[in-house]
């Protein structure tokens, strides 16, 4: 464990908690892409199947459980409890355009052709594109509440910190996970445009982020 990975995990947890609390307290999921949250729940489900077969550490197990519980709790808020406020009109990204290529690639490019490994690879590839429905929804509505942009900021920051973690681990341990690194770079690139808008708009105190 290193400071980059730990702070990355903390940013990830903060992002998920920000979103959950925003929906819970405002009793509304307006502006939130339910599809992205479904994809994230799928990412955690396919990645954490080793929860019961491989014990890494207390921290690892606890964080996996917390991520899974919060992901499904957020999805249930969006699609059940506050479904009247769910804007399915604007959440129109065709997720099959993500799932099919990601599933195909995970069968082609993986470390070993076993169910657990293919599902893990699927979760890595899926995570790099899971935010696209949310980013698409923001471009469609042309705006995002500032709390939603803070959620996206921490979510983007978490994988950016993981890139630093991989540089560190390569330097310190010679550890290099090509699939995770390549996907992590792609994932972070998708946030670059958002980061630019976040720093130039939201942090300038304009509250809401409105797209040009």
């Amino acid at each position: 464990m290193n400071i980059f990975r730990l702070s990355g995990d903390v940013c990830h947890l903060v992002a998920i908690i920000i979103l959950f609390l925003k929906i819970w307290r405002s009793k509304s999921c307006a502006g939130i892409s339910g599809k992205s949250q479904l994809l994230f729940a799928l990412v955690f489900t396919t990645r954490y199947l080793d929860l019961f077969t491989a014990f890494i550490s207390i921290y690892n197990t606890v964080m996996k459980v917390v991520f899974l519980v919060l992901a499904y709790a957020t999805v249930s808020l969006i699609y059940f409890r506050f479904r009247k406020s769910y804007d399915s009109e604007s959440d129109s990204f065709r997720v099959e355009f993500l799932l099919v290529p990601v599933a195909g690639l995970s069968f082609l490019e993986n470390y070993s052709f076993t169910p657990l490994e293919i599902l893990w690879t699927f979760s890595i590839y899926l995570e790099s594109v899971a935010i696209l429905p949310q980013l698409f929804m923001i471009t469609k509505t042309g705006e995002a509440e500032s709390i939603t942009t803070h959620y996206l900021f921490f979510l983007g920051l978490y994988r950016t910190l993981y890139l630093a973690n991989w540089v560190w681990r390569y330097h310190e341990e010679g550890f290099f996970d090509q699939i995770a690194v390549v996907s992590g770079v792609v994932q972070t690139i998708f946030y670059c445009d958002f980061f630019y808008l976040y720093f130039t708009r939201v942090l300038r105190g304009s509250g809401k982020m409105t797209l040009p």
């Binding site: 990975r5 995990d9 990830h12 990645r47 080793d50 491989a54 890494i56 550490s57 690892n60 964080m63 996996k64 991520f67 470390y111 070993s112 490994e117 893990w120 993981y162 973690n165 550890f175 290099f176 996970d177 090509q178 995770a180």
Partner: peptide, 10 residues
């Protein structure tokens, strides 16, 4: 190939 059996990252 990395030691991909142990997935120690979240």
């Amino acid at each position: 190939q990395p030691n991909f059996t142990i997935k120690d990252e979240l």
